[in-house]
Simulated scan of single mutants.
Amino acid sequence: MLSHARPEAHLVHRIGWLRAAVMGANDGIVSTASLIVGVAAASGDRSQILVAGMAGLAAGAMSMAAGEYVSVSSQSDTERADIARETAELHTDPAGELDELTAIYVQRGLDPELARQVALRLTAHDALGSHLRDELGMSEVTTAAPVQAAMVSAATFAVGAALPLGTRPWRRTGRLRFGLGGGGAQAGGAGIARGTLRVLVWGAMAMAATAAVGHLFGVAAA
């Protein structure tokens, strides 16, 4: 008899929304803070800085939602096409599909006889699911969710973009991005130091670039 295995807390089920959340919040903080720094370097007028920040928040949130929806929908369309193709192949050539599944298990280390037995049992249980999982690498965890990605990305962008709108945003942005990098890495079960470092480095580069542009245009306008 099989013993009761202890439950394992894997984090792969978070991939779909975590990627969109981290990207949205990161883009919100970086793009808005960079925009504010660029406008401040060019003019320094408080009202112009606030208007630029709010406009960046609104435009960025909608852009993130649209971009996520379109890109993830493309993935979803490809998945549906593969499912339809695999369904048709199982109907028209079941023997060939069984051979294909057997070959996959042989490549993974099973001897041919055992691989054939496994392929037969899995085909009888769920032929389509077995091919989607073992042939195409598709599962419920990795299935594309366009609406979820769009909503999460837009919401986290708006939250991230709102944070630098306070007083002296360029001083607060470093702490915000430090928290974002560490929090995102922890939620995904990755190393906190590495996640934090890459967020800080790329954010600093973006802000430095927009500050330089703002300064140059400010000098030219003057």
Results as ranks from 00 to 15, higher is better:
residue 151 M to N: 10
residue 179 G to M: 12
residue 160 G to H: 09
residue 178 F to I: 00
residue 158 A to R: 06
residue 147 V to I: 13
residue 164 P to W: 07
residue 183 G to L: 08
residue 137 G to I: 06
residue 190 A to N: 11
residue 141 V to A: 11
residue 174 G to W: 05
residue 130 S to C: 07
residue 173 T to C: 10
residue 167 T to E: 12
residue 141 V to E: 10
residue 124 A to C: 07
residue 159 V to P: 03
residue 190 A to S: 10
residue 198 R to F: 07
residue 197 L to P: 00
residue 164 P to D: 10
residue 155 A to P: 03
residue 137 G to S: 04
residue 167 T to D: 11
residue 186 Q to W: 14
residue 147 V to H: 15
residue 151 M to Y: 09
residue 130 S to N: 05
residue 173 T to R: 00
residue 186 Q to T: 14
residue 152 V to W: 09
residue 144 A to T: 09
residue 161 A to C: 08
residue 179 G to Q: 01
residue 135 E to N: 03
residue 123 T to D: 07
residue 160 G to S: 13
residue 167 T to K: 00
residue 169 P to E: 10
residue 149 A to N: 15
residue 143 T to Q: 13
residue 153 S to P: 08
residue 120 L to T: 05
residue 141 V to N: 02
residue 168 R to Y: 12
residue 166 G to P: 05
residue 172 R to A: 11
residue 138 M to N: 01
residue 149 A to C: 13
residue 126 D to Q: 02
residue 189 G to W: 05
residue 123 T to L: 05
residue 157 F to D: 12
residue 185 A to G: 11
residue 190 A to P: 00
residue 198 R to K: 09
residue 166 G to N: 04
residue 148 Q to I: 12
residue 149 A to D: 14
residue 136 L to R: 05
residue 198 R to Q: 13
residue 162 A to C: 14
residue 134 D to H: 13
residue 147 V to N: 14
residue 143 T to Y: 07
residue 188 G to L: 06
residue 149 A to H: 15
residue 189 G to D: 06
residue 167 T to V: 15
residue 185 A to Q: 09
residue 166 G to Y: 06
residue 142 T to F: 03
residue 199 V to A: 11
